[in-house]
Simulated scan of single mutants.
Amino acid sequence: MPQYPPAPGEMPVSRTPATFLREHSAYVTTTVSAATLLTLARIWNEQGAEHSTGAVALMLAFGGASGLFALRLDDPTAQAVFASGALTFGALAVGVYSEPIAPALLIWAVALIASCVLIGRSHREDHRVETTHRHGMEARRLERGVDLSIAQVTAQAHIEVAREQAAAVAAIEAAMAHRAALSAGGPVDPVAMLRATGQLPQLTAVPDHSRTA
């Protein structure tokens, strides 16, 4: 798959001849293979295949097989390569059969142009699918982060409510215990009752040193 421009904030990747060839391997492979096959067809023409209907039939059979593969495959790049192969074998049929090479070169050029257009479209489609997938994963990651934050806030709120409820229960139990002590005939201590219910804070006695001076 070809490399695309880096996203904002990303460092650009250094480009070397090997990187260029790897990014455009489909174009290079199609061009080299088509040129090699056309050269072999002309050599076959010079070796006695000129005006040979059998050679033409063989090239057309190969072209039909390539076209069939192009229709059955799901990968857009492979479809482009096999479609170009079908046109290339058409050029080979002309190149093997006829003496002038001009018609074969014309068909070969059309095959290469069509192949490059189809491969470019398949690469753009791959890029679109990859971008859509990346955006979907990013949106899913953000949604999970939001859900986790909401869960944390909810859990913290539940913990605070539980603490407040525990403190209220403890205060009620202390008040009930004090009331039970009063019912048993003990002395009445209003300050202790208020402190048990949480309505009176803890007081600290401060000594008065002015009287001892």
Rank of each mutant, 00 (worst) to 15 (best):
S33F: 07
I159Q: 15
I107W: 03
V169K: 09
E46L: 12
A181Q: 02
V169S: 14
E160C: 04
S52T: 05
E173S: 07
C116M: 08
Q3R: 14
V110Y: 01
G64A: 11
M193D: 14
D126Y: 13
L142S: 06
R163S: 11
G120V: 03
I119A: 05
A102F: 12
M193T: 08
I119M: 02
Q47W: 11
S25G: 08
T19L: 08
R144Q: 14
A61D: 09
E160S: 05
L142F: 09
V191H: 11
A155Q: 10
V13L: 14
S14H: 15
S183K: 05
A177C: 02
D75W: 01
F20V: 14
N45L: 03
A86C: 14
A70R: 01
G48S: 01
Q3V: 05
S66E: 15
R211E: 08
R15F: 05
G198C: 03
Q3F: 06
A80S: 04
C116E: 10
A18G: 12
V161L: 11
G186C: 04
E10F: 04
L148E: 07
V117H: 10
L200F: 09
F82W: 05
A177K: 12
M176A: 10
E23P: 07
I150Q: 08
L148T: 14
V110D: 08
G95D: 00
C116S: 09
S33E: 15
A180I: 01
V206G: 02
A114L: 10
R128K: 12
A151V: 06
D74F: 02
L40G: 04
T77C: 05
S25L: 14
A170M: 06
P207M: 00
R163T: 15
H178P: 02
T204N: 09
G186M: 03
A7P: 06
S66Q: 12
P100H: 02
D147S: 10
E23D: 15
S66T: 09
A91W: 08
T132Y: 12
Q79N: 05
L182G: 00
P6D: 00
P201W: 03
P6T: 06
R141K: 15
A70G: 08
H133S: 13
L68C: 09
V32N: 03
L118R: 12
G67Q: 03
A78P: 00
Q165H: 13
R134T: 15
L92Q: 11
V129A: 14
P17A: 07
G64F: 07
E125D: 13
P8M: 03
G67A: 00
V153A: 14
P100K: 03
P8I: 04
A35T: 07
G120D: 11
A49E: 10
T36E: 13
L87P: 00
P207R: 00
P103N: 07
L38A: 00
C116F: 11
T77W: 02
H123M: 08
G64M: 12
D126K: 12
H127P: 03
V188Q: 04
A41L: 02
T36H: 07
L60P: 01
L73M: 07
T29G: 06
P17V: 07
A151L: 08
T131Y: 12
L105Q: 02
T16F: 06
A65P: 02
R140Y: 13
A7C: 01
C116W: 11
A111V: 01
A80K: 02
P5W: 04
L60R: 15
T88V: 04
H127Q: 15
E10P: 06
L58S: 08
D189F: 00
M137I: 10
Q199K: 15
R140Q: 15
V191R: 05
T36Q: 13
